Simulated assay, not measured.
Amino acid sequence: MHIVVAGATGATGSLVVRQAAAAGHRVTALVRDPRTYAAPPGAEVRPAQVVEDEDLELPADVDVVISAIGGRSLRSTEPVCSTGTRHLVEALARRGGRGRLVVVSATPVLTTGIGEPFWHRRVVRPLVRRIGRALYDDIAAMEALLRASGPDCAWTIVRPGYLVDAGPTDYRLVPEANAPTSASRTDLADALLALATDESAIGRSYGLRRGRPVPSAA
């Protein structure tokens, strides 16, 4: 499978690239400046301005795009997610056929409160949304864009909680609900790759529930 990774230089995107290459997939990393990016063995590098380029081009034989683009902090105001995702959707549509796209969203975007304890739904999530209003409005706009994309885009959304740099756990994906726990970036990368090959995940969203640490191999 040919997997294209947007946001490949970020903390999550770089893990997706490494894990996908290690699993034997053909991987293309979209990066702003290839000179500053050390690709892992088995990964190709393609210069691309995903957020800025309205005429973004993707490899002709791409099977799935995994997007880990996002704002740099809760105070981010630039519409990175919605703009970059629109360019990816349009680039997939220009290729013809139905483009597969798996994206990283965030727990505070799901406003129904499904999967959250009462205190988290009434106190924590509203507070986080207020602090990062522009950031989460941008991510919510990204989700709305995907849901309105029609038959050209076969999308899947993953909403992790607060991301931490940690090893793998026996995580669980929670369909159409939130998982109000922190999430390991390693687990998130693994989940994105698993969903990219799962046809039943098309048109669905998932929370990511952190589990028990997986013992390292001796």
Rank of each mutant, 00 (worst) to 15 (best):
V4G: 00
G10E: 00
A11I: 10
T12W: 04
L15N: 03
A22D: 11
A23S: 12
V27H: 02
A29F: 02
R32T: 05
R35G: 15
T36V: 15
A39D: 07
P40V: 04
P41S: 06
V45F: 07
A48E: 01
E54Q: 15
E54D: 15
D55V: 13
D55K: 14
D61S: 08
V62Y: 06
A68T: 06
R75K: 14
T77V: 04
P79A: 06
C81M: 10
T83R: 11
G84W: 02
T85G: 04
G96Y: 08
G96Q: 04
G96L: 07
R100K: 08
V102P: 00
L110T: 05
T112V: 09
G113V: 07
I114P: 09
H120P: 06
R121L: 13
V124L: 12
D137Q: 14
M142D: 02
A144E: 10
A148W: 09
A148K: 15
D152W: 08
D152F: 11
D152G: 15
T156L: 04
Y162E: 15
L163A: 08
D170E: 11
D170F: 06
R172K: 10
R172D: 09
V174F: 08
N178D: 11
A179Q: 03
P180F: 01
T181Q: 07
S182M: 15
A183Q: 03
D190M: 12
A194F: 12
T197K: 12
S200D: 13
Y206K: 05
P213H: 07
V214N: 06
V214R: 10
A217I: 15
A217M: 14
A217F: 15
